[in-house]
Structure formats: C-alpha cells, structure tokens
Simulated assay, not measured.
Amino acid sequence: MYIADETWPELGDYFADESLALVPLGSTEQHGPHLPLATDHLIAEAFAREAADRTGYCCTPTINVGVSPHHRQFHGTMWVDAPQFRDYVESFTRNLAYHGIDRVIYVNAHGGNVDHLREVGRRLRDDEVMYAIEWMWDESIPELVDDLFAQNGPHGGPKETAMIQHLHGHLVRDDQLEAARDGGVPDVEAAETVKHGSRTFYDAADNTGNGVLGDQTDATAEKGERLFEAATDQLCQLCDWLDDQPFVDLLPKEHV
C-alpha cells in the first residue's frame, strides 16, 4: 500500500491493525554517462513499492536526495549535508510514530546514506520511540551479484545498470555502456587510491574520471530482473520477520 494514494479514513484502518512502514531512500547524483541521476532513488522506490504490494505493508513517499557530496564534481549532483539529512529523516520517521508505527525499514539504495540511517535508527531506538533498520538490496543477495557479474562496481556498475535496464530501460543510454566501462575503472583497487591500508580518496572523482566503476557492458535487463526478484523476496521476508517481533524485544537491553 502506497500511503499517498490513500485517504485519511482508509489509513485509519491500516494504523489500527499494522505497525510497520517502508521508507524508500536514494540519491540524485551522477551515475556515469549511461545512467540517470535518479538511479538510486528509482531503485529504492521500486523495491519499497513492490514489497508493499506483495505484503500489504505501508510504503511512504521516497526521499530522493541523500548524502552525496562525494559526487559533487559531476554536473547536476544534488546533496544535503549529513547532519541535516539525519535530522530530516529522524523527523520524517517520528511523524510515522505519531500515527502508531513502531518499526520502519529504510529501503535504501545509496551507500552514502548507510551510516547516517544507522545513526537515526540508534537515536529512535535509544529513545524507545521506534525500531528502524536500514536495508540495501545488493547486500541482501551478495552471492547472486557476484555470480552474475565479474566486475560489479560498486558505483554505476553493471548491477545498477542491469537494475535500471529492468525497471526503466528507456532511461539507460545503451550507446554509452562501452564509454562508461572504458572511461572508468574496474574497482577501487584498480584506482590505486588505497595506500598502505589507508583510503586516500574522498570523492568519486579521485577514483574515476567518469564517475563509475565496473564493466557496464555486462549488464542486461534479464539479469536485472533476476536481481530484483531475489532481493524483493529478501525484503518481504525481512518485513514479515520484523512484524513478528514483540516490540519490547526490539528495544535496548538493560544495563548488565
């Protein structure tokens, strides 16, 4: 169920019976010469909406701009600073708590959001307001990702390319796949920006001239469909697991 499609009386029935919501989050940032800036938030929204449809749980509107200053050198990238992002997401989530939601899954498709979503989840849990956890689609199916792609990225690589080919194929610039591969690097190791155990890079531009990594020519819509189905199944299972937990068991443990 997508919350914004419902009327307030209809939602009263949901909040009376259910206590879980899905919150999709992504970014609006460069994804190379072949993918749209919307890549991450389109992926997050697709997973959250599909899981909501399959399970009956509530899905909120998507948070489209995330913590992306490390992509700022590339035209059009948008970001919010980390403290403001954390405060906004926390306020957004507390709004759900006001309506009776006490557990949230942040359906996230942008790596730059991860640490900040974990911090927000900790704040809410420590205040005993809510139990909120972060979920990343590719981390739910790592073996399949590795099986499908020899060089899977991470950023703007074949796994994200395949996903957008499946979800919004008209947005993929197929004539730029070779340019994406040839103008980027296979992985961070190939960028040679890890020195003696230290990550000496701060921005994507420090690693790759065109903003992406991996072999984008290895992507297909069929692979994207396999990834989408497998990860959606994992998300639905996570929803049902979380819904089954007694709320008291999700709160912080007592001091020993």
Rank of each mutant, 00 (worst) to 15 (best):
A4C: 05
A4R: 15
D5C: 03
D5P: 04
E6W: 12
E6G: 02
P9Q: 11
E10P: 04
D13G: 05
D17E: 13
D17M: 01
L20H: 13
P24D: 08
L25P: 10
G26K: 09
T28I: 09
E29L: 04
E29N: 08
Q30D: 10
H31R: 09
H31P: 03
P36F: 04
L37W: 04
D40Q: 04
H41N: 15
L42Q: 07
I43S: 04
A44S: 13
E45V: 00
E45T: 05
A48T: 04
R49Q: 08
E50K: 05
Y57N: 08
Y57W: 11
Y57C: 03
Y57P: 03
C59I: 01
C59G: 05
T60P: 09
T62N: 14
T62W: 10
V65I: 15
V65A: 13
V65E: 14
G66A: 05
V67L: 08
S68Q: 08
P69L: 02
H71Q: 07
F74T: 02
F74D: 04
G76P: 03
T77L: 08
D81P: 03
Q84Y: 13
Y88G: 13
Y88M: 15
V89S: 15
F92P: 11
N95T: 15
L96W: 11
L96P: 03
A97G: 12
H99R: 14
D102I: 00
D102Q: 11
R103N: 09
Y106Q: 09
Y106E: 10
A109P: 07
G112L: 06
V114M: 14
V114Y: 15
D115I: 00
V120N: 15
R123I: 00
R123G: 09
R123F: 07
L124V: 06
R125F: 06
R125I: 00
D126R: 15
D127S: 13
E128A: 12
E128K: 15
V129I: 12
Y131G: 04
M136C: 10
W137V: 00
S140N: 09
I141A: 10
L144G: 10
D147G: 01
A150S: 11
P154L: 03
G156S: 06
T161K: 09
T161C: 11
A162C: 02
A162P: 06
I164E: 06
I164S: 07
Q165R: 11
L167E: 03
H170V: 00
D174R: 13
D175L: 06
L177Y: 10
A179V: 01
A179G: 04
R181W: 08
V185S: 06
P186K: 07
E189D: 14
A190H: 14
A190V: 01
V194P: 06
R199W: 08
T200K: 13
T200I: 01
F201D: 05
D203E: 07
A205W: 10
G209D: 14
N210D: 06
G211W: 02
G211D: 04
V212N: 08
A219V: 00
T220N: 07
E222Q: 09
K223S: 01
K223C: 00
G224T: 01
E225R: 12
L227T: 01
E229I: 00
E229P: 01
D233V: 01
Q234M: 11
Q237N: 14
Q237S: 14
L238S: 10
D240W: 11
W241G: 02
W241T: 05
W241N: 10
L242Y: 13
D243V: 00
D243L: 03
L251P: 12
P252I: 01
E254C: 00
E254G: 08
